[in-house]
Nucleic acid binder design. Structure first.
Lengths: 181, 181
DNA sequence: ACACTACCGAACACTTCGTTCGGTTATATT
DNA sequence: AATATAACCGAACGAAGTGTTCGGTAGTGT
């Protein structure tokens, strides 16, 4: 990929991230993004069809990082699926999120973030499916409902944690999460 | 209140309801509302500061109906809090919602409805608080987290129900709800 | 009958969006 | 080093939506 393309794309992502930490997605205008990114208007639209597609591309890169199923992690992170015995991928996830990579917390806490939440839930789904055996499903409810409930509970737990200022440790939050599901 | 005011307000609410059944809140423009309501532009803005305030007023009337704590119900509904013994206010609520009064289901199912969901949750909070004794709180989690979890689970159960086409009866959904909390 | 006030509707300034186009500059290739 | 290519710039544009203003009209309550 052309170096200019890369630079432009990164500048836009960077500006987008910065703006997301300041205001809600819906309040951000394309004009602001290109101003902060210092990029021409036409250039922005040659990279992203609309602002929604920018969010989509942003989420894909973000979740690719967080939920990465590849093994070649250059940053020395333990892979999210590399959990030994009693360890939990959910604990890993809470720990990872606590670092607030790419201002993901701002996105989670903001209003009018349905689009983002949908992407987040879609990525969570794969994770939860692989961990379904951890949870004992009551026999009188369907599996689809059960899976949805686990995903919802994780997201709502995370939102509650953020809304309360993340005072609890990831370990405690993980305990809360497992207690209610 | 002036009859004209009442008529205008109702016309706007009615148009808003109709449009909500057709598209998401954010897709609806003021221009469409006043066209369907057959009302002048200035008139709309003399009633509602912005479209968001219209939603707010709309929600207040809607939830006042659903969560009404008054005793003088002219429609012959049993009051939502009038439950005998094993009966549940949550079952009542599911039943009530199934009737889709004022297209509340469209609002719940639509995207970008954070504003609406916030109002809905705020109203649910009072209800849940009055019913907290029904749920056995695990001792290792804080009450605030527990309450939030119950509210979230109710909302997510409702959303799942709607998303799946509401095939289950309110009784079954109520059973699902109580099973997971 | 009267004063009041809600309504109309056209026009306005303003913001944002997404596109177009001619000109400029960086990049990869030979 | 020369060249073709493709990305970038930036100004301008039309379209759509927002919220306001204002003079004129007509329904309402007393």
């Amino acid at each position: 990929m052309d170096r200019r393309q890369r630079k432009t794309r990164e500048a836009i992502f960077h500006a987008f991230t910065k703006l997301l930490s300041q205001k809600d997605f819906n309040q951000i205008t394309v004009g602001e993004i290109i101003e902060v990114a210092d990029v021409g208007r036409a250039t922005f639209y040659s990279h992203f069809e609309t602002k929604d597609y920018l969010l989509k591309a942003f989420c894909e890169e973000l979740f690719c990082h967080i939920f990465d199923t590849e093994n070649d992690d250059p940053h020395g992170h333990r892979h999210i699926f590399d959990c030994d015995g009693s360890d939990s991928v959910f604990l890993h996830l809470f720990q990872h999120l606590q670092n607030n990579d790419n201002n993901i917390l701002a996105l989670l806490a903001s209003q009018n973030n349905d689009l983002f939440l949908n992407y987040f839930r879609a990525n969570l789904e794969t994770l939860v499916e692989s961990q379904l055996s951890l949870f004992e499903r009551p026999t009188n409810i369907p599996e689809a409902f059960w899976k949805n409930h686990i995903i919802s509970t994780f997201v709502e737990t995370l939102k509650w944690w953020i809304a309360c200022g993340m005072k609890e440790t990831p370990e405690v939050i993980t305990e809360y999460f497992f207690t209610v599901v």
